[in-house]
Design a protein around this nucleic acid. Structure first.
Lengths: 325, 325
DNA sequence: CTGAAAGCGCTTACAG
DNA sequence: CTGAAAGCGCTTACAG
């Protein structure tokens, strides 16, 4: 469908049709109506009636929207971006490199958004995006500007907290997607001259991974007195499974989560966890992206590191005497 | 920047530049490279290098991404849409009518997505979108095709469940955005010849609304033996506040949530809640949207109603004798 | 492998 | 209030 064809269909000139769609003041209301009605019938109304948007559109690419960890960040970013009169488009790549690249291409080269915020870049980046991209919560080796979280020091802090309470038999509960944090845990333990009693990687996710992990842990290393879980949902599942097995938290087992999601204070015994400072990270990342958007020659690549911090609540306590190291 | 200017800048013809961007086979690799490099420098690479996307793009417009209720639906929709080779763009309107309309315009008339899924339409709909729109979880009076949830019957089921356990002093805990469910609760109570002991609407949201609501409830109606909360996060906050006040759930107070979000079985005493059948709703809504996308003359407006159902877990029990009856 | 030229789709200053 | 005509930006069949 072209303007010409639509014009013929309405028995007016292309000029008139063109002007009608551009809100020219000299077109009669009647003619405009006739043209719009015909366009809608022929299914080309949207094609020509392009509203002008002065708002900046910002894409946020995350791995998934099914976890409070990411949605906590997304809601904060959205508040900041909308405050600055931007429109936010969110997509999830499901931890898939190919899909992440596809989404980057789609937003940068097809939709031409004004800026992209992305939770870590997993694949080598295609060159030539003229859309500014800021990564947050990546590994720290992203090929773009990045605001990332140092997890090493808070995981070390968590281990130190347990050691101070008297624990020496500490295990780690993770899942397939969180191997890096497991390594950091092992390093932190080594730094305290300790061996993990177990380092379990479940094939499940979320709460189910915690239940699965605890079942395996109680078989493999029943002398364990404390568990660090790779994220809070896993800690929830772990606590449930511990209770089912007749073990109380924190009397029989200390549990620490990571991410400090919104519900952690509301789960019966409130969870000791590691906070990732989402307010600060979001503010810094959006600030950086804005700077890039204002000046495309702002080519200097910045890496901004923030450290997480341990929040001690009720799920950690000294080990029972009979088990203490 | 125009192709002409870019061509002059590279000392080639417009034809050559045009062909370079369209992957014409007769352009030398060298020339193509020169042109692309210049385009990137001049910031117009993305403008001309429009990859062709054969994928359908689907917008999902929700009120917020900060609650498991919506993200549970979104993850399911995303799985279905990606299975059918679609790209998903998510935006949140923050319960704001103006912003919802803006997002509809943006996706339909500006980005020209292939279809829109939206969680209830709050404002009168502008006519003339030639983009198919399906509403889910609206009020049932949306101006588009809609798949919506009947909450009346499961709320009635929840009240009946409490009455059968022996409760007669039942309160409702809501917040500013959930007035409709409060009305349905009052009707269900009337159907059982009962008066609510209280119907509290907190100005807070999520867990904080539950804590706030319980504090007010214990002052206003201390003889209450059961609470229905307008969504699960409020129930979490309510249980926390009840425990703080020295009341046990369900021995001293029964609590029912709504939505049956993923964490409800993992919160210490697992929560009795109302399930909204997200799998079924998402499958039906996506199916309907696909049909509309395949045939734009599929103008028959459909309203599909699904009923929620009560899932009884551990937070409901008979009232203590001294309070019963 | 490159470009001149024809031509399409759209916009707009101008005529009536 | 409408349209003929000039002209811009882009694509493409064809010539070299």
């Amino acid at each position: 469908m072209t303007l010409k064809k639509l014009a013929d269909h309405c028995h007016v000139s292309v000029s008139t049709v063109s002007k009608a769609f551009h809100n020219a003041p000299d077109i009669s209301e009647e003619t405009r109506e006739t043209i719009f009605r015909a366009a809608k019938e022929l299914g080309c109304y949207g094609k020509y009636r392009k509203e002008k948007y002065n708002k900046k559109s910002i894409a946020v690419i995350c791995p998934e929207t099914g976890s409070d960890f990411y949605t906590g960040y997304i809601e904060r970013l959205r508040a900041l971006i909308e405050q600055d009169n931007g429109i936010v488009l969110i997509s999830a790549d499901g931890f898939d490199k190919e899909r992440q690249r596809e989404l980057l291409d789609y937003y940068a080269d097809h939709l031409h958004v004004d800026g992209i915020l992305i939770f870590g870049i997993h694949a080598p980046l295609k060159t030539g995006y003229d859309t500014p991209i800021v990564s947050l919560h990546g590994t720290g080796s992203d090929p773009t500007d990045a605001v990332y979280m140092d997890m090493r020091s808070p995981i070390n802090e968590a281990v130190a907290h347990l050691v101070k309470l008297g624990h020496t038999h500490v295990a780690f509960l993770g899942e397939t997607l969180t191997a890096t944090k497991g390594d950091m845990f092992a390093e932190a333990m080594a730094g305290h001259q300790l061996q993990p009693t177990a380092q379990i990687s479940s094939e499940q996710r979320f709460e189910l991974a915690g239940e699965d992990g605890v079942q395996r842990l109680l078989e493999q290393a029943p002398h364990t007195t404390a568990i660090i879980c790779t994220y809070d949902y896993i800690a929830l599942g772990a606590i449930k499974a511990l209770n089912t097995a007749g073990l109380r938290v924190p009397e029989d087992m200390s549990v620490i989560g990571i991410d400090n999601i919104r519900v952690t204070p509301y789960i019966g015994t409130s969870l000791t966890s590691i906070d990732t400072h989402p307010d600060e990270i979001c503010a810094i990342a959006w600030d950086l992206l804005k700077k890039k958007m204002e000046n495309h020659f702002f080519r200097l690549k910045q890496r901004i590191q923030i450290s997480g911090s341990l929040v001690v609540r009720e799920t950690t306590a000294p080990p029972r005497n009979e088990n203490a190291g």
